[in-house]
Design a protein around this nucleic acid. Structure first.
Lengths: 338, 338
DNA sequence: ATGAAAGCGCTAACAT
DNA sequence: ATGTTAGCGCTTTCAT
């Protein structure tokens, strides 16, 4: 059943049928009704491939994201998949997903698959997709040559590349200032791979120390394993090696989980002896005990903004290269708060 | 740049170029090399829409799944998105995602969008997509008329519909038997919407009671809110209303989190005074305190099996309608274990 | 081993 | 308001 069949059955030309399909004004009400009823009766649906061929688009966006099957994946970024997809669907776009593990294997391949698929835009979720080695980012620049690329919570400059990100610098600075001003003397900063986002956080952390005339000490800025148990062991080792800390700023809620496990194992009182701030305001913060104070980076707002700008870009042809969203500290039970 | 350009540039017909693209044997090594080098140099990629039109497929699978942006979404099912996508990609299929909230709004619309997109198969993840009202499932039967439908952890009979699921009956029965045999007298069974999967669990639970000549009491089979705090409050109310329980079997790990919160609030010792078993073996089980014992329903195996059967179905044309995977109890710190 | 040409189903420029 | 027709870029049948 194709448009010609409908054309014959309803006694009009294919153009008219096409017009009805696409909601053109230039069809008399009578004809429209007739055609619609025929289409309905025949259970006809326009062939999306033919449509795609003619229009050179199937209204599809490719999403490169963290692998949701990884239990240690940043919960926050996993959530963004849902936020983005729903928002895109509202605008009539379908989402093709490509899940990448933290080893980044397949990143370039996936970008190529999207290009071959001729997606209308590429969304990359998470700053770790921007790697330290420039060579590893070439594929993103290449993709941007033909297709607009949007980074959610990532920052990368280039032609046809747009970023929406959280002001990690400011929020982490604020979090650290809060800890300092509530008595913490030795704050440990824990990151995982020191992605772009984590670098901004580290800078905000250091700035807070400087703001209060405290020294920025290298041994207090550490990389922590993603696995919860490994992270706990890492902290035990750190403590055993003599590092003293009375507060932790963790770049991800999962890392904060390791800190809590460490505290439980060592019978450390929270927040009296150890304050903890995570990042992401994920569901984990409500599952642990005590509940975790965390920085909410407003991932939903980032996602919604991304799609709204992306749509505007399709329509207007251009948009600001960078959008910055502010975050906020959510106090739960692992920080002292007055 | 299209196939005709390549044809001209390499001095062969489009047919030959097409043969090279599709790896046909009937091309001389010399021609193949020539064409490949021209394609490479020109940076040519076959137009996927044209290809789709000719072949009537773009090698795409539609995935209907739980909304990962919902903090109370079953972690387990969110993970499956990653497992499925990676497995599909390995087989050369792209995944188009449709995230549905627990209210099921848009379910039928999404199925229609997949159909319009002419996906090669539809995967539905989670048994709650099978609703109690048969009318609400008609859209699945309709979709199956033209496109094979695969249910992951769901059970629904119909032509062209295939199911891969966990033996929830047996695993929940085993879990309940374990609790009974380790001293629990009053086990509370908590579900959320009593989906098909939850019904099987409830049956397994009841069977265990019968196995040990214990009464099956309605007031011990309850629906609990998905939200962690609401769930905690629900349990407090239950206890305040006089219900005595010394063990809980929760249909989802998130529900078990509520039980833990309740226990903390009431200073109940775990597992001495209260044993808890969750479902899903999600990351939450490692975040809470004490760590949660849980039923692992082997979601990864379910996903991998689904894709392998789906591929076989494409090739062989038929496959068994139902595949059942067994689950297993993972003992952590909320159960007594010898 | 290679090529000519028809067909896939739709859109849009142009004509009426 | 409606119709004719030429693309869109590929695959495939049928010749050679």
């Amino acid at each position: 059943m194709n448009i010609y069949d409908i054309s014959k059955l309803s006694g009009v030309s294919v153009t008219t049928v096409s017009r009805v399909i696409n909601g053109s004004e230039k069809v008399s009400e009578k004809t429209r009704r007739k055609v619609l009823s025929v289409m309905n009766e025949a259970g006809y649906t326009p062939n999306a491939f033919a449509r795609g061929l003619g229009l050179d688009t199937m209204r599809t966006v490719g999403i490169l994201c963290v692998d949701p099957s990884d239990p240690n994946a940043c919960t926050n970024l996993v959530q963004s998949i849902g936020f983005l997809e729903k928002e895109l669907r509202l605008q009539g776009y379908d989402s093709v997903l490509y899940c990448i593990e933290y080893d980044m294997k397949g990143k370039a391949d996936c970008l190529n698959m999207m290009l071959n698929r001729r997606v209308d835009a590429i969304i990359i979720v998470g700053s770790f997709f921007i790697e330290a080695n420039p060579k590893s980012n070439q594929c993103i620049l290449d993709a941007a040559k033909t297709t607009p690329v949007w980074l959610v919570n990532g920052n990368f400059e280039g032609d046809n590349i747009y970023s929406v990100l959280c002001d990690d610098f400011m929020t982490t600075r604020k979090a650290a200032l809060h800890l300092i001003d509530h008595g913490s003397k030795n704050i440990l900063f824990l990151h995982s791979t020191l992605s772009e986002s984590e670098k901004r956080k580290a800078n905000g952390f250091s700035k807070a120390l400087k703001d209060r005339d405290l020294p920025v000490r290298e041994e207090y800025i550490r990389s922590c394993p993603r696995d919860i148990d490994e992270g706990r062991d890492f902290l035990m080792k750190l403590a055993d090696d003599g590092l003293k800390f009375d507060a932790v700023v963790a770049c991800e809620d999962t890392i904060a989980m390791s800190v809590l496990k460490y505290a439980h194992a060592r019978n450390i009182k929270i927040p009296e002896e150890l304050s903890i701030v995570g990042h992401g305001n994920s569901i984990l913060t409500k599952c642990c005990y005590p509940e975790l104070s965390t920085v909410d980076n407003n991932i939903e707002t980032m996602c919604v903004s991304t799609i709204s700008m992306l749509i505007r870009h399709f329509e207007a042809g251009h948009t600001p290269a960078q959008t910055i969203i502010s975050g906020n500290l959510v106090h739960r039970a692992t920080t002292i708060c007055d």
